[in-house]
Computed example of a mutant assay.
Amino acid sequence: MTTTAVLTLALVLDALLGEPQWLWARLPHPAVLMGRLVGGAEKRFNSGTNRMVKGGAVIAALVAAMLLLGQALAQLGWVVEILVCAVLLAQKSLLDHVRAVATGLRMSPAAGRAAVAMIVSRDTGDMTPSAVARSAIESGAENLCDGVIAPAFWFVLGGLPGLLAYKIVNTADSMIGYRTDRFEQFGKAAARLDDLLNWLPARLTAVLIALSDGIPRHWRAIAADARLHRSPNAGWPEAAMAYAINVALAGPRAYDGVMQDFAWVNPAGSKHIGALAIDAAASRLWQAWALFLVAVLTLATLL
């Protein structure tokens, strides 16, 4: 079975089943195991001198281990490939988390803040309902790339080795890729490699979201606003989503008690938003996923 055919089935399986809690209540999720590897390596090696070199060596070793593991798993046949790929995709679970924020906001602002705190790292305690909605929409757009399009992209290019290598880098970036005293040096290699691996998938995600709105009429504005983002990649799907549903995203927000004055994305869009805007974003995320599925299925038919 071709790689694109395997990916097609994995995308559908993930969309239908998501993360079965009965299974992961009994077994550690592969992403959790990757997190333990990264966390253990950080505790062991992130000290003393030459922490940048140590961090680079650690991420190189983890990538090499995932490449070998991917090759071994691929030898077990296409059924294993489908299952592993489906487990490491996150479309349904992503949408479940995003829609939980809309459900919370419909109950109360406090319930919305509690739900969005599950998916963002910024301060949520004093968020207005509009800020809660923006956070959920931004997280959904960015994680469509990190959780679906990018892992699928690297699976197409490199099979299970490529997928597992991407996931370990993305996991490491989410844990140690921060500009703090503790992680600035040790996590630099992980952060830079994650930027590189997401460069094309982020822009592909933006195209898919823009196409979910029909003809991408706002592409120049999307590109301009994306370049204002602090991340070289995250701004692309966020900007595409902002224009697709005509809301203003990004803007000022607080991290660790410090308010940071980030630029607005689509500043002319609505700033007073709530659960309905999250619903609209969720619909776009499914439409973008469907477009991607059609593209992969087309490749599977042609190859």
Rank of each mutant, 00 (worst) to 15 (best):
T2I: 09
V6D: 00
V6Q: 03
T8C: 11
L11F: 02
A15Q: 09
L16R: 14
L16M: 14
P20H: 07
Q21S: 13
Q21P: 02
R26A: 14
P30F: 00
L33V: 04
G35Y: 03
G39Q: 11
M52W: 09
V53S: 13
V53A: 15
A57R: 05
A65D: 12
L76T: 05
L76A: 10
L76V: 04
E81C: 06
L88M: 08
L88A: 00
L89P: 01
L95E: 06
H97V: 10
H97Q: 12
H97S: 14
R99D: 14
A100L: 12
A102Y: 08
G104K: 14
M107G: 12
M107E: 15
S108K: 02
A111G: 09
A115D: 13
V116T: 15
S121W: 06
D126C: 10
P129E: 11
P129C: 09
A133Q: 12
S135N: 11
A136V: 15
S139M: 13
G140P: 09
A141Q: 10
A141E: 04
E142K: 10
A150Y: 01
P151R: 10
F153Y: 14
L157N: 08
G162H: 09
G162Y: 10
L164R: 00
Y166Q: 08
T171W: 09
G177Y: 00
Y178P: 03
T180R: 13
F183H: 15
E184H: 11
Q185M: 15
F186C: 08
F186T: 01
G187L: 02
R192M: 13
L196P: 00
L200C: 04
A202P: 01
R203I: 02
L211D: 14
D213Y: 02
D213M: 04
A221T: 05
A223Q: 05
D225F: 01
R227L: 15
H229I: 06
N233C: 07
A234D: 13
W236N: 03
Y243A: 03
A244C: 07
N246Q: 12
V247G: 12
G274A: 12
L276S: 10
I278Y: 09
I278G: 10
A281K: 10
L285E: 03
A290K: 03
L291P: 03
V294R: 02
L299N: 08
A300I: 07
